[in-house]
C-alpha cells in the first residue's frame, strides 16, 4: 500500500516537474503546447493513482523509513543473506561509466572486451574466481572477435578513431 502511494506521489512530482520545464521557457512557447498537454494528462493519471490506491493520512509517517529501505533494496521478501541489490550493482554501474567514457578514447572494441571480461569475472558465482579467469578471458576474446567480424568486417561499421581499435 505504501509503495503504491509513494509511486503515485512520485508520479505527481514528476508530472509537475515536467510541466514546470515546459512552462518556463524563453522563446517558442507555441512549440511546447503538445508536451504540456501530455504533462496535464500525467498529472491527471497520477492523481487517479493516488486516489485509487490508498489513503494519504498515514503517508508521511513511514515515507522516510520506506525510502531508506527501498533504496537499499530490502523491500518485501528480500533475501537478508545477500548483499542489497543496489550494492550488488555498484561494480556494474562503475564498469558502465568506464565503458561509455573511454569507448571513444581507447576504442570501442577494446573497451567492450574489458567490460565483457570484468562483468563475467565479477559476477561469476564460482569460487575461487581466479580459477575461471583464463576461461573468462578466452570467452571474452572469442565474443569480441565475433562482434568485430559482424560489425566491422561484415557491416562495415565505422567506429570513432581512437588510440586502439
Amino acid at each position: 500500500m505504501l509503495a503504491k502511494r509513494l509511486t503515485a506521489l512520485g508520479g505527481l512530482v514528476l508530472a509537475i516537474v515536467l510541466l514546470n520545464l515546459g512552462l518556463d521557457v524563453e522563446y517558442g512557447q507555441e512549440a511546447y503546447f503538445f508536451p504540456n498537454l501530455i504533462t496535464y494528462f500525467l498529472c491527471l493519471f497520477a492523481v487517479i493513482l493516488l486516489v485509487n490506491e490508498g489513503q494519504l493520512l498515514k503517508l508521511l509517517k513511514s515515507t522516510a523509513s520506506f525510502l531508506w529501505r527501498w533504496f537499499f533494496g530490502i523491500v518485501g521478501e528480500g533475501n537478508p543473506g545477500r548483499w542489497p541489490e543496489i550494492v550488488q550493482l555498484i561494480p556494474m554501474f562503475l564498469l558502465l561509466c568506464f565503458y561509455l567514457y573511454f569507448a571513444d578514447i581507447l576504442g570501442l572494441y577494446f573497451c567492450s572486451l574489458i567490460t565483457f571480461f570484468f562483468i563475467t569475472v565479477i559476477y561469476t558465482p564460482v569460487r575461487p574466481r581466479s580459477a575461471s579467469l583464463l576461461k573468462n578471458a578466452l570467452i571474452s576474446l572469442a565474443f569480441i572477435s565475433v562482434i568485430y567480424l559482424v560489425f566491422s568486417v561484415l557491416l562495415q561499421l565505422q567506429t570513432p578513431s581512437a588510440l586502439l581499435i
Partner: peptide, 22 residues
C-alpha cells in the same frame, strides 16, 4: 553472467551503429 555481459556489449554496438553516435 555471460549473457549479461554479451547483451551489454551488443546493446552498445546496436545503439551506436544506428547513427554512429555515442
Amino acid at each position: 553472467y555471460y549473457m549479461a555481459a554479451g547483451i551489454t556489449v551488443l546493446a552498445v554496438f546496436g545503439t551506436y551503429s544506428v547513427q554512429n553516435s555515442f
